[in-house]
């Protein structure tokens, strides 16, 4: 699978940009949190596309955002 680039995203409408990012993020998130991956991905897609692109390149950034999202989810459902 080719890496997602800024120019690939720039040519798509916002909703489509988020979908493309979600397709890349989901398997990475699923590897960390199989049961919550769909909700975590949905939450992270509220973040700016430029930051999401960075997270795709940086496992540390993605991991810390996933941890944050899980904490928010757990508080939400508590």
């Amino acid at each position: 699978q080719e890496p997602l680039t800024v120019s690939m995203l720039a040519s798509a409408p916002l909703q489509e940009q988020k979908h493309m990012l979600g397709e890349r993020l989901f398997p990475l998130i699923e590897a960390i949190h199989p049961t919550l991956a769909a909700k975590i991905t949905g939450m992270l897609l509220e973040i700016d596309a430029s930051e999401l692109l960075h997270m795709l390149e940086s496992p540390e950034s993605l991991g810390s955002k996933v941890d944050e999202a899980v904490a928010v989810l757990q508080a939400h459902y508590a």
Partner: peptide, 22 residues
């Protein structure tokens, strides 16, 4: 949208509607 349905779930292969489907 209702907080009960938050957050929206992303499923591969399904077009992303984001917050619209809440």
């Amino acid at each position: 949208g209702s907080s009960i349905n938050w957050p929206p779930e992303f499923h591969p292969g399904v077009p992303w509607k984001g917050l619209q489907n809440i």
